[in-house]
């Protein structure tokens, strides 16, 4: 069976019937890395020099002290996501890389400092999003919200009416659901990551 369609300017074969361009989409990558100095710089340097659009990057230790986990959210076309995964995997201190399914468990923590003129209303919103008030004074109220992308974005929208003075977001931390390992050390899979797309991806 011969592949159909011509290559576009990005070298990608395009189905003549379908759209001529791949649309960027959000992807969550999880990487297991060696816990050693310089890895964060190496990963962030890779994403910037190869012009991958990065939305957030978090890093933290795991049970195995020699390793750390990075969660990287990128906004890229499908071929861009594939390329980002492979480039990431290529770094020597990177042990494994997995693109998480859209239904993976994702959490971000955000701290918002709003004007304190309407404490009751602020409190109501905080309650609604299951957040917590960290600091309250006559002029400002500081709250913490934890949630997935949608929840955090919605909460921020809701606080906007009071006037947001300052905001800080941690970026996403994410694990896959159920028994499946988030970024298992399985070399064949990583080596052929080329064709691997999470199950629920269209």
């Amino acid at each position: 069976m011969r592949p159909e369609g011509r290559r576009n300017e990005d070298g990608i074969r395009i189905d003549p019937e379908a759209e001529a361009k791949h649309e960027p989409r959000r992807a969550v990558l999880s990487a297991l890395v060696e816990h050693q100095p310089g890895v964060l710089a190496e990963v962030s340097g890779l994403f910037s020099r190869r012009q991958f659009n990065i939305e957030s990057l978090t890093v933290g230790t795991i049970v195995n002290e020699r390793r750390a986990r990075m969660t990287i959210v990128i906004e890229e076309t499908r071929p861009g996501i594939q390329q980002a995964k492979k480039q990431l995997r290529k770094l020597v201190p990177v042990v494994s890389v997995r693109e998480l399914a859209q239904d993976s468990v994702q959490r971000e923590l955000v701290i918002v400092k709003v004007n304190g003129e309407e404490p009751d209303k602020v409190h109501a919103i905080t309650e609604m999003y299951g957040g917590e008030t960290l600091d309250a004074g006559p002029r400002t109220i500081t709250v913490e919200i934890t949630g997935n992308e949608q929840q955090v974005d919605d909460a921020i929208d809701a606080y906007e009416q009071f006037g947001i003075r300052e905001i800080v977001r941690t970026g996403y931390a994410s694990l896959s659901r159920g028994e499946q390992q988030t970024a298992a050390v399985e070399h064949d899979t990583n080596v052929t990551a080329d064709t691997e797309v999470p199950a629920d991806d269209d």
């Binding site: 290559r7 074969r13 290529k90 080329d194």
Partner: peptide, 28 residues
């Protein structure tokens, strides 16, 4: 121009580096 590069060819790409596959020209 990759649009005019071997436009009618099936490309069999042998490489030791997975990141080179379909980086510039999609491998069939």
């Amino acid at each position: 121009d990759v649009e005019t590069f071997a436009p009618d060819a099936d490309i069999v790409h042998v490489d030791i580096d997975p990141a080179e596959v379909s980086k510039n020209v999609e491998a069939d």
